[in-house]
Structure formats: C-alpha cells, structure tokens
Design a protein around this nucleic acid. Sequence first.
DNA 1: GTCTATATGGTGATAGAC
DNA 2: GTCTATCACCATATAGAC
Lengths: 213, 213
Amino acid sequence: MALSVGEHMPDSSRADILEAAAHCFMERGYAATSIDDVARRLDATKGRIYHHYSSKSDLFADVFRFGMEMNYRAIEPLRRSGEKAVERWRQMALIHVVQMITTRQFQRVVWEGVEMHLRGATTPEQRTAFAELIERRSRYSDIFRDLLAEARDDGDMRFENLGIANQLVFITLNSPIFWYSPRAGETARDIEEIGRQVVAFALHGLGVRKGNP
Amino acid sequence: MALSVGEHMPDSSRADILEAAAHCFMERGYAATSIDDVARRLDATKGRIYHHYSSKSDLFADVFRFGMEMNYRAIEPLRRSGEKAVERWRQMALIHVVQMITTRQFQRVVWEGVEMHLRGATTPEQRTAFAELIERRSRYSDIFRDLLAEARDDGDMRFENLGIANQLVFITLNSPIFWYSPRAGETARDIEEIGRQVVAFALHGLGVRKGNP
DNA sequence: GTCTATATGGTGATAGAC
DNA sequence: GTCTATCACCATATAGAC
C-alpha cells in the first residue's frame, strides 16, 4: 500500500523509506532486519536511509509513530458522536480492526515496539526515545478502556476486572495483524465483514447480547 | 520455574540450558538473543551450550518442542472425559490458559516460532527443521477447533466462521503470555482465577451464556 | 563436559566523492 | 541526496586444552 502524502504526513522522500522499513520490520522483526534489507527493498543503498535517519532505532521509532498516528486519525471523528458508550465503542472497535488489516505492516511495528518496551528488551537510549510513543499508545488504549467502564456503568456491558477485560478485547481487536493474510480480489467490504465478526466476538465476550445492529 | 526431570524430559544437563534459553528468548526474542547471553545466565560459557546443541536455531527448536509437549501433556487427561464438547472445551481452555501463565518463557518461544514460520522469517534450513514442530502445533490447535465445531453442532455455541472463531479464541487464551506479569505471593488459586476470567470472556464470545459453572 | 582462544562473516554507522 | 568505500564491533561457530 502506498502512503498518500498530505497533512501531518512525512515528506514524500521519507514516506518511501517508512513504507519499506515497515514492510521489512513486519517480515523479520526489528532485530533481524538490517538497514541493508530496507535499502535493498528501496533499490537503494543505506546512504539514503542514514541521510534521513540517524539510526536503525530512530527509523523504527518513526514507523511506530506513523502507525499509531494513523490509528488516532481513524477513530478521531467518532469520539464525540453523542451515542451511548457501548455504541461508540462498537464503531471505534470496527474502525480499529479495519486499520489493523489495511495498515498491517505499521501495526506490527507498533505491536513490536510495545512488546519490546514491556519486556525491557530496549537499550537505555531506546527506552528514553520510546517513552513518549509508549505513553501515547497507552492513552490510545485508555480511550477504549474508558468506554468499557462507561458502558458497564450504563448497564450495557458485563465483565469482572476492567484491566483484564480491556487487555482481552484489545488483543482480540489487534489479532488480525497475526492471522489475517490478504487474498486476491478482496474488497473493502470483505475486510469490513471480517472486522464485523471480530467485533461481534469481542462484544459477546463483554456480555453484549446484540453485537451486530 | 525449575524443570523437573522425569519421563519424556530432557536429561538434567539439558534442562538447565533449556530453562535459561527460554528465559532469554522470552526477554529479547530469538534474533536479539546471543548464545553468550544464555551462557551468562547459566554462569557458564558457550562451550557448554555448543556441546549439547549444534546451533542457536537447534536450541530454539528444542525450547519450542519442550514448551509444546508440556501443553499436550497438560490437556491429555481431559480429551476423553465423556462430557459434552462445550464442557470439554471449557476444561481444556482453562488448563491451557494456566499453562500459558505458569510456563510463560516456553510459551513465548512457541509463539515466536509459529510467528517466524508464518511470516517466512526463517532460513530454508530452519523451515525444514521447524516443519515437524509447526505441524504438531497445528494439530494442537485443531483439537480446540474440532471441539468448537462439535459444540456448535450440539447447539451449545454460536459463531459464524469456524476458522476466524478459532483464531480469535486461541489468541484470547494465549494472550496472558503478553500481558500477565507475576506478582509476589501469587497462589495457584489466583492464577486459576485469572484463567477463569479469560475463559469466561472466550465462552461469551462464542455465544455460550453460562460461562462459569 | 566445559573452558579458552580464535576464525569468519555480517551489521551499524561514518567519511567523503559525486 | 545518494552512492561507494571502510571501520569497528559483535555474534555464530569451531578447535583444541584441560
């Protein structure tokens, strides 16, 4: 998928690098991906990459950031839709799942970035550099968690521990980055249909009867 | 957790290496873990490891295998319990979740091994060496999937696509390897309580009303 | 069975031409 | 802005002492 260049987007010369890096990181993971791998995918040499990024870690962080910002932008219009919490959650969850599928390369990197942080598999410098990203990611997750709490207060959801419930549904919503694989001729409608099933499962898990209005 | 040595277990000298390797692979991932890291954790040098394993990849595969065999052994007693499919699934799922928590190091490696395979992040030699493990892992997942199908036929579960449903619940059941972190003084009862909540979420997702008999 | 070298190759990062 | 060297380092794997 090509990145369109617009507001809040990286300049076009960086966009190609981001796209190639995301793809490589998705395929091999951070540690196993070399800068030469990314350069090869660009039909270039690493001189090009090091002109724009000071280190492999810096490049990874920028892919991480870009992937996460796409998610924020995607759900933003829905945040104040005036509907009840359970319904806002449903709409945002669907958008989120579709994002996971359509921007898979980037979302894998977001996942790996969070994982590296949680496991402490980061150098002290990375820990500092990632701190802001992790914080922002955490606030993204909070948006969903707060809606769960509100929906439970409304009597529209039933679950025991809020933290565990949010972990479970968040993993569920993210899971297509692991098991989804694109098929030839697949349409946006097909992807939305997958998203609907994922969200339906999560909603039922949260004790919501009618998951598919 | 120390490995007890018994039937079908690796000899004790390998058991220490397996344990150390699992821990390192869990913390840093396969690519970022060096043989020296594992040796350091053993208060030894890599000579000791290379005496027992011919390569890093070979060591990883053995951790993978051991982790998976623990899972098979754990659910084995429940497979022919005579109960209805939905109930057998519930019991096996609970054991599985508890396994994910109590043998986290190994289960992370199983996960990463599967992931590496799916993403094609393997050398041709690894692909051959992993093939048998991946196949066995796949059959393990099939045990759960077949029970889902049976339970749906019994009218005890409701979901749309069997493949998607199984992916979603399997990810749910595995998810503690990512978000669980041990607390001081935590008992087996506490862990089972977490497992119960995870299984309850999954059962609700599968359209089962009364998830906690 | 485990240790201490050491050979060998790859990777992150830099310098300087163009 | 991108390329072609090139350096310094680290990691896998081996050889041979003990």
